[in-house]
Amino acid sequence: MADQRIWTVYLSGEIHTDWRDQITKGVEEAGLPVELVSPVTDHASSDDCGADILGAEDSSFWHDHKGAKVNAMRTRTLLESADIAVIRFGDKYKQWNAAFDAGFAAAQSIPYVTLHDPALNHALKEVDGAAMAVAEQPEQVVRLLRYVIRGEL
């Protein structure tokens, strides 16, 4: 009898390119039993959620702090229930949140894959060192998932 398990894959990190869409399309085309989840990827909503929901703040520090706490409820819950995490680092912005997610995944023994350009290898050597795999393209992530889930190359 075939395994009916649905794998949950958390997609963390950079929000300015279509890497999530590429992985979604690849997973669908491969027919993989995967549910893809992620943080809120609308930048303004993510930044302003705390103040919009709980009230405005005069200080940008407390505005950001409130938003970070509200976002952390989603991030921690989804990451803790993930079977695998994919942590994407782009080259345009520093994704401190992605590095935090990678550390959290490592501390929780959640296997993760980093996804980034080779130009970032040195900067991410510790993060990559704890990763189960380091990919350069979303297609490689889909192939990794196909192998891990089905044992197919």
Rank of each mutant, 00 (worst) to 15 (best):
T41P: 04
L32I: 06
T41L: 14
I23Y: 09
Q22L: 03
G13N: 14
E28C: 03
G55L: 08
R20E: 12
D47C: 04
N71V: 04
S81L: 09
V9L: 07
E28S: 08
E35L: 08
P33M: 04
V9E: 02
K69R: 13
R76G: 08
E29K: 12
T75W: 01
T41H: 11
C49E: 05
D64Y: 12
G31F: 00
I84A: 03
R20A: 08
A82Q: 11
C49V: 08
G50M: 00
C49R: 10
E80R: 15
S81Y: 07
I53Q: 08
V70T: 00
L11M: 11
L79N: 01
D58Q: 15
T77K: 12
A51V: 12
S12R: 02
E14K: 13
V34N: 07
L79G: 01
W19M: 00
D47S: 02
H65E: 15
S46L: 13
D47R: 00
E35N: 09
P39H: 08
I84D: 00
C49M: 09
D21P: 00
G50Y: 01
P33I: 03
A72H: 03
F61V: 11
K69I: 06
E57T: 14
M73P: 05
E14G: 09
G31I: 02
P33V: 02
S45H: 12
K69H: 12
A56N: 12
V37M: 01
L36C: 02
D42A: 10
S38W: 11
S59E: 15
D21T: 03
T75Q: 08
A68M: 10
K66Q: 06
I23R: 06
E14Q: 14
D18I: 03
S45G: 13
A82P: 01
A72F: 02
T77F: 13
D64C: 12
G26W: 06
W62H: 13
I53G: 05
S45I: 07
A82W: 12
T17S: 14
M73W: 10
L78M: 14
L78E: 10
V27T: 00
S59D: 15
D21W: 02
W19T: 01
E35C: 09
Y10W: 00
D83T: 02
V34K: 01
L54F: 09
G13I: 15
L54K: 05
I15H: 11
V34I: 08
S46P: 04
L11K: 03
D21S: 04
E35M: 10
E14T: 09
V27R: 05
L36T: 01
V37I: 03
D48Y: 13
D42N: 13
L78C: 07
D52N: 03
S59N: 13
L78G: 06
I53F: 14
I15P: 09
K66F: 09
I23E: 02
K66G: 04
D18A: 11
S81E: 08
E57V: 09
S46W: 14
A56Y: 11
L79F: 07
Y10A: 00
A51Y: 11
V40K: 14
C49Q: 05
V27G: 01
P39Y: 05
A72T: 05
S60H: 15
H63K: 14
D42H: 11
Q22T: 01
D64H: 12
D48L: 14
R20V: 11
G55D: 08
G26D: 05
I84E: 07
S45M: 14
K25Q: 10
D83I: 03
V9H: 02
L36W: 05
D64F: 14
Q22C: 06
Y10K: 00
